[in-house]
Amino acid sequence: MSRRAAVLGHPISHSKSPAMHSAAYAKLGVDIGYSAIDVTVESLPAFMETVRGDGSWCGLSVTMPLKTAMVAEVDDVRGAAAHLGVLNTVAFEFDGGSAVRRVGYNTDVAGIIEAVRYAGLATTPHAAILGGGGTSAAAIAAVQEMGAGHVDVFVRDVSRAVEAQAAAAAVGISLAVRPLTEASTAVAASDLVISTFPPRAADALADELADQPGTGGGVLLDVAYDPWPSRLAEVWHGHGGAVVPGLEMLMYQAAEQIRLFSGCDVDAAVIDVMCDSVGLPRRVF
C-alpha cells in the first residue's frame, strides 16, 4: 500500500519540504507520497482527527504556526520535544494491527547543530538568537547542547517570548530576553547568531549591522530561506562572516524525518539528491 506524508503549516505554499522528501523517497525506492497541506491552529484538531483513522499515513512535518499546538494532538512526545513542548515531526507507529500511535519529535535541534558544525563554530559559542517562537526553542536547546551556559534572545515584543523562556528552563540554560532594538551591538560580537525570524523581519537589523565594521566575525544561521540570500545574510557575508543557509538546516532536520517516516537509513547518496532538489550546494559531510 502506498503511504502518505505531508508538511503542515500556514502559509505553506513556499515550503521546500515536498521537493526534499520526494527526492529522498525516490532515491530510497519507497512508495511514500509527500505533499504540503495548509492547516491553521484552529483547524488542526479536526485535521488530526481525519488522520487518526487513515492507516495510509506514516508521518507529518510540522512548521509554523503549529509547532506548539501539535503537542496536544499526539499520543506521545519523545526526545527534545518532550522537554521543549515544541515539535516539528509526527511519526505514526503501528502495533502490528490496526492501532496506531502518533509520536511527536523535534528534529530541528539536530538540524541546527549539524548545519553549523561545519562552519568553524567554537565548541562553546557565545550565542544570540533572533525571535522567540517555536524554532527559537529548538535553537536554544541546540546552543545548550553545544556547550553554552547563556544565550541572549532578541524579540520584537518581549511579552511574546514564552516558548523561548520555557525552552531555556527545560534545558537548563541562562536566558536574557531583550528587545530587538538592542540587538545590533550584541549580535555583532557573537560567535553564533541564529535568526528564526520570517523573511525580511530582520532587514532593519541588517541595515544597522551594515554600518558596524566589526560585524560578522562569527557564524550566522538564517532559518528564513526565501528569498535568499536574506539582507541579514548579505551583510554578514559582506563583513567576512560565515553564513549557513536555512535550507541546510531544513535538509538536516528533514533527513531525520525521512528516517522516522520510512525506516530507512539516510546516507550520503540520499543527502545528495535532497540537496539537488532545492539547489543547495554540498558541504563536505
Rank of each mutant, 00 (worst) to 15 (best):
R231V: 09
V266D: 03
D267W: 09
V244P: 08
L247M: 15
W228A: 10
C264T: 11
G238V: 07
V266G: 04
P227M: 12
L250M: 14
V235Y: 04
S262Y: 07
W236I: 03
D222P: 03
V266R: 07
G240T: 11
V235H: 09
S262L: 09
C264V: 12
D222K: 03
V235K: 04
H237C: 09
Q253G: 08
P245A: 09
M249W: 12
E256W: 10
L250Q: 06
D272P: 00
E234F: 01
M249Y: 10
F261C: 06
V235A: 04
L232K: 10
S262K: 07
L260D: 04
G263T: 14
A242V: 15
V244S: 08
Q257F: 05
E256D: 15
Y252T: 00
L247S: 11
E248V: 04
V235I: 14
A268F: 01
A242W: 00
M251C: 13
Y225R: 03
E248T: 12
F261T: 11
G246K: 01
L232R: 09
H237L: 14
P229G: 13
A269E: 15
F261A: 06
D222Y: 07
V223Q: 04
V243Q: 07
A268C: 00
V223E: 04
S230D: 02
I271C: 00
G241H: 11
D265A: 15
A269P: 00
Y252L: 11
E248Q: 14
M251H: 09
D267G: 14
G246N: 05
V266I: 15
A269M: 06
A224M: 06
V223G: 01
A254C: 07
G246A: 07
D267I: 13
G240V: 11
P245R: 09
S230E: 08
A255W: 07
S230G: 14
D267F: 08
P227V: 06
Y252A: 08
R231N: 12
S262I: 13
G240C: 10
E248R: 15
E234H: 05
Q253Y: 11
V244G: 05
R231W: 02
R231I: 00
G240D: 04
V270F: 10
S230M: 07
V235R: 08
I258K: 00
M251W: 06
P227E: 11
D272N: 08
G246H: 03
Y225Q: 04
E256V: 15
V235W: 01
P227Y: 10
G238N: 10
A224N: 06
F261L: 08
A254Y: 07
W236H: 05
I271L: 15
Q257T: 08
V243D: 02
V244R: 05
L247E: 02
V270E: 02
V223C: 13
A255L: 10
E234M: 14
L250E: 05
A233L: 10
A224Q: 02
L247P: 09
P245Q: 10
W228E: 08
V235D: 02
G263I: 14
L260N: 01
V235E: 05
R231S: 09
S262M: 09
M251G: 01
I271N: 00
A224D: 08
W228F: 14
D265F: 01
I258W: 01
F261H: 09
P245I: 06
A233F: 02
D226R: 13
R231Y: 03
V244K: 06
V223M: 14
G246S: 07
L232P: 00
D267H: 12
I271A: 09
H237I: 00
D272L: 12
G238K: 11
H237V: 00
V270G: 01
W236S: 02
W236Q: 03
L250A: 12
